[in-house]
Design a binder for these strands. Structure first.
Length: 547
RNA sequence: GCGCCGGUAGCUCAGUAGGAUAGAGCAUCAGCCUUCUAAGCUGAGGGUCACAGGUUCGAAUCCUGUCCGGCGUGCCA
């Protein structure tokens, strides 16, 4: 689209000027049906009211004023009720291929975000358990978004926010303690009702015993504190290990606790009080969100004196603002949706520009096998962890599957399909295209040619041109994926590239006696390879040279 | 009750800021390997876009209402 538009826009504007039209936006789109041209515009429809004429007549007068190079544009036709369809010529595509080739390894990179800083917060799981599929989706979306911004030239902070104080971590300590006693001392020791029922608690209890023996048997604050620390460390170690398997490395781990120790929680409380936005009722401190346009007020400090999660969330986001980011992105699961308006509204009342915050909410993941849903209940503890899944289907498949759907729809993870080590698995389709190209280059080594120069004008078959058409969309795909924050857009694009390449490969032989043609086709394959490599890098999937 | 997300082929999902004959993968059926990797290519069947109204040259897409599913709606995070 970028290349099409760059070429077409001036031509159309010139034509419209002749008709004394200047205040209309020239919009182009790629028709879903290639029979309607490479690019199409509905501009004639948009002008019907202003010109009081039929779309067809308007289209005709626009066309008759167009001046263009016949080698670049083959044909401009009026079709349908008044669409102007543009058919590009071979030379246009050869020209684009040259431009793509010149970008070499940097193909698809931008400088849009140069000098700008973005913070992407993802995963952010408290160290009270293992990662499961939902966390995995969050992690893979977040990492892909972070990669995209890096590709656009931004300076990216990959952040993980966690809380190792408060209620949840106490529940963890109590759960571990109960299992510890149950295994080694009293088989029928009661397990807390609100405890974590997962099997991993047994594992922690066993590791705890091998470190401390029976020294923690007595239930007192000191021992529980030791257990708490042990459990937290244990969980974090596991979480980081799992993330590492997914090639996810974050560079800031923000501990909620730090907000208290440096007084940032108190600071926020003071500001709210000063601005008259908070008040006391029933021994608790409330935030007057109803004065700010929301439905109801919320407690920010419980009557026990502990803050609710909302208060540190607000303080944390204030901290991010104060660190001077141009863009703040939060990746949340749909279960966190309730807090978003509260936090944003509060920040606005503090004078921050909340349009800089982009909250991405993804829906849940379900796991299915043989058409049956596998229940992932926390209650029974028989949950399927992200590690289990990685063991079973591998890193590439997990990363790919967890982002291949729009983030706003539920994602069904089909274990059978994921396990499939064959053409049925969509991951391999992409990787295979890359491996094929690598293998061609390997084979081409045996033919003694000078690869530096190639006459791209020798290209021109239907399949070659179609491949170039697919390749020239890479930048658009990256932009669109980032703009919409929908990683699956990039995946869909890469699938098209792979498909178009496979068809080209099937129909046009690359390695042949005709060395000049071969060189040109190798250039085409080279650009394809780089786009697949870069695309796969962004989504965190490997690009194997052999399969 | 209220808020957010979803309802499109047998299944899982796309549908590009309202466009032309609604698409893909899987599944089903039928073809293509003595030539660069068949993890590939080619073809066929398969649809009341949940339902009902509305907006306009034009609606799967926007608006209203209804039905169904998920997630929220805590002095849990």
């Amino acid at each position: 689209m970028k290349y099409y538009r760059e070429y077409l826009e001036p031509i159309f504007i010139k034509s419209l000027k002749k008709l004394d039209i200047s205040d209309v936006e020239t919009q182009f789109e790629q028709p879903s049906n290639p029979a309607f041209g490479d690019i199409s515009t509905n501009i004639a429809f948009k002008l019907t009211k202003a010109l009081k004429s039929s779309p067809k007549q308007i289209a005709e007068s626009i066309i008759s004023n167009l001046e263009y190079d016949k080698d670049y544009i083959k044909e401009v036709k009026i079709e349908g009720a008044g669409f102007i369809n543009i058919y590009f010529g071979k030379l246009f595509f050869i020209n684009v291929l040259e431009k793509l080739l010149a970008k070499a390894e940097d193909i698809g990179k931008f400088e849009l975000g140069k000098g700008k800083r973005v913070n992407v917060e993802y995963v952010s799981v408290n160290p009270t358990g293992l990662l499961h599929l939902g966390h995995g989706r969050n992690a893979c979306i977040g990492d892909t978004i972070a990669n995209l911004y890096e590709w656009l030239g931004y300076e990216v902070t990959r952040e993980y926010y966690f809380n190792n104080a408060g209620n949840q971590i106490n529940v963890l300590a109590n759960s571990i303690y109960a299992r510890y006693i149950e295994i080694y001392f009293e088989p029928h020791y009661p397990f807390p009702n609100d405890g974590y029922f997962g099997d991993y608690i047994y594992d922690i209890a066993e590791d705890l015993y091998s470190n401390y023996g029976d020294r923690l048997r007595e239930r007192n604050d000191e021992n529980l504190n030791t257990i708490k620390k042990f459990g937290e460390k244990w969980c974090f170690y596991k979480i980081e290990k799992t993330l590492k398997r997914l090639k996810i490395q974050q560079n800031v781990f923000f501990n909620e606790d730090s907000l208290y120790t440096v007084g940032k929680i108190q600071e926020i409380l003071d500001i709210f009080k000063e601005k008259g936005l908070s008040y006391e009722k029933d021994g608790a401190i409330w935030l007057a969100l109803s004065n700010l346009g929301l439905d109801s007020d919320r407690v920010i400090v419980k009557s026990t004196g502990e803050p609710t999660y909302r208060l540190p969330d607000i303080a944390y986001h204030k901290d991010k603002f104060d660190r001077g980011y141009d863009l703040i992105i939060d990746i949340f699961g749909s279960d966190h949706i309730a807090t978003v308006p509260d936090v944003l509204t509060a920040l606005k009342s503090l004078g921050y520009d909340t349009s800089k915050v982009k909250v991405l909410i993804h829906q849940f993941v379900t796991l299915s096998e043989n058409g049956q849903q596998i229940k992932m209940s926390k209650r029974t503890g028989k949950s399927y962890t992200l590690d289990d899944l990685l063991d079973e289907v591998g890193e590439d498949v997990v990363r790919f599957f967890l982002i291949m759907r729009s983030i706003s729809t539920h994602l069904e993870f089909d274990l059978n399909l994921a396990r499939e080590q064959s053409e049925k698995n969509p991951v391999y389709y992409l990787q295979y295209a890359h491996a094929r190209i690598c293998s061609i280059f390997e084979n081409a080594k045996s033919v003694d040619i000078d690869n530096s120069q190639a006459n791209l004008n020798l290209l021109g078959t239907e399949f070659e041109i179609n491949l170039i058409k697919a390749l020239l969309g890479f930048q658009d795909a990256i932009l669109m994926t980032t703009e919409k924050s929908e990683p699956h857009i990039l995946i869909d694009y890469l699938k098209t590239v792979a498909q178009t390449f496979h068809i080209f490969y099937h129909n046009d032989r690359i390695i042949s006696q005709d060395t000049e043609l071969m060189k040109a086709r190798l250039k085409l394959a080279d650009v394809t390879k780089k786009i697949l490599q870069n695309g796969l890098k962004i989504i965190g999937v490997s690009a194997p040279e052999k399969m």
